[in-house]
């Protein structure tokens, strides 16, 4: 789960990055959308998936 969370975070970064090459110079809207999608995926990876994995072993649950 921890690896999945990190992987999602990285994928969220790569989406707007690769999108720079795939979208034409004029399509700012497409780039903007890809950025927002990428950031959302990274946030899910870090704050939900990775955090959930850590919460399972949290000191207060023992």
């Amino acid at each position: 789960m921890k690896l999945l969370g990190l992987l999602l975070a990285v994928v969220g970064w790569l989406i707007p990055l690769i999108g720079l090459g795939l979208t034409a110079n004029t399509s700012t809207g497409a780039r903007l959308t890809l950025c927002i999608v990428g950031i959302a995926i990274s946030c899910v990876g870090i704050f939900y998936v990775l955090n959930q994995a850590h919460q399972k072993q949290a000191v207060w649950k023992r």
Partner: peptide, 25 residues
């Protein structure tokens, strides 16, 4: 200039998607 906003969002994506995983590792 919406292009500047895209550049800033790519910076944010890099912080979340590269810096965080790197420093976590």
């Amino acid at each position: 200039d919406a292009g500047q906003l895209v550049a800033q969002l790519i910076g944010i994506a890099t912080l979340l998607g590269f810096v965080f995983p790197f420093t976590y590792a």
